[in-house]
Amino acid sequence: MSKVKIESEKCKGCYLCIEVCPKKCLEVSKEFNKKGYHPVEFVNDKECTGCGFCYQICPEVCIEVYK
């Protein structure tokens, strides 16, 4: 059981984290943030292994990983 926490107000919507997630636990949110981007949201806490790939590639450092 692992999870990631995304600070969605800091997300600029590059979606590199979605590309690198091996378990496809991240998706584009339907909501807007204050900057006008669709931030990334965490959708699958059953599959997440806490590998931290999303954290490693996030240019905004707005992802935290819990295991």
Partner: peptide, 11 residues
């Protein structure tokens, strides 16, 4: 559940 990766102190 422990936090394993987060923003480093130097940022």
């Amino acid at each position: 559940m422990n936090k394993i990766l987060s923003r480093p102190e130097s940022l």
